[in-house]
Design a protein around this nucleic acid. Structure first.
Length: 266
DNA sequence: ATGGTCGCCGAGCGA
């Protein structure tokens, strides 16, 4: 079973690029972030026509996540637990069964958090929301690990985990994607017992998955690796391959992200 | 180059 994650930066503007990618790459499951669409106006038939079942968790204008799957999507949960007042659509999870068993797929769009500091040098509300969201994610991951079943927690983490995940790490030193507190919160989550699918199977390889539209970042390969696929041990035991589809970023009217994928023996 | 580029929607914010 091939599973991919892709921050598409707006489903309406990206419909040609995303459907072309689905037809060429043909993942069994696609986890989409930043659909920037409400559920009622999501162009679901465009994906159903390609053989995908569709589950969305959208909101107007911003954020929004979706799961596309060629196999039935079961037990859908929308929203990250832990804050009933949180109205931002950044989390959807569901179960998909393959020939050899089921996998829980969790699709996340972690808050960006910039700018991280207020004028007084204190953490901004946006940055505190990011860290609070990560603390809630840590609790949900702990629950998933306690199930001792295959799960994939994937998406746009808006975290640059390590220096080598940025072409120009000095440019990101004071950015919410790379600050010490951000990376420490990310490490706490991974260190609960998750495996980074791509890094594990491609040690030392370039991890970039995002190139800004501005300042010729793509042309200069000024990228960062912020889209990650993290696996529970039971999913990691099934891991066959992992990849980054870098060429998609160079396509017609592209997203500023590119898909990251893995294959599980399911 | 103290800007630059997108997407959302129809002004300015978010990234």
């Amino acid at each position: 079973m091939r599973i991919a994650t892709f921050n598409i930066n707006g489903v309406k503007a990206r419909l040609p690029a995303v459907t072309a990618w689905l037809q060429s790459s043909a993942p069994d499951i696609a986890l989409l972030q930043e659909i920037k669409s409400q559920d009622a106006t999501f162009p679901r038939s465009a994906f159903e026509d390609l053989g995908y079942n569709v589950e969305t968790h959208g909101q107007k204008s911003f954020n929004g996540v979706a799961i596309l799957s060629k196999r039935p999507i079961e037990d859908v949960v929308r929203g990250l637990p832990g804050d009933d007042a949180d109205e931002q659509a950044r989390w959807i999870e569901a179960t998909v069964s393959g020939d050899a068993g089921a996998v829980r797929v969790c699709c996340l769009y972690l808050p960006n958090g910039n700018p991280p500091l207020d004028e007084d040098g204190e953490w901004s509300a946006k940055y505190r929301y990011k860290l609070g969201w990560m603390a809630r994610l840590e609790r949900r991951v702990a629950e998933l690990l306690a199930e001792e079943t295959p799960a994939v927690i994937a998406g746009d983490y808006n975290v640059i985990p390590q220096m080598e995940d940025a072409a120009r790490p000095d440019d990101w030193r004071d950015d919410a994607l790379f600050m010490d507190a951000t990376r420490a919160a990310y490490r706490r989550i991974v260190n609960l017992g998750l495996t980074d699918a791509y890094r594990t199977l491609n040690p030392g390889a370039e991890t970039y998955s995002f190139w800004d539209y501005q300042a010729g970042a793509w042309r200069k390969n000024d990228g960062i690796g912020i889209d990650h696929m993290l696996l529970t041990p039971q999913a990691a035991d099934l891991l066959q391959a992992a990849w980054i589809e870098k060429d998609v970023r160079g396509g017609e009217k592209p997203s500023d992200h590119t898909p990251v994928g893995c294959e599980l023996n399911l």
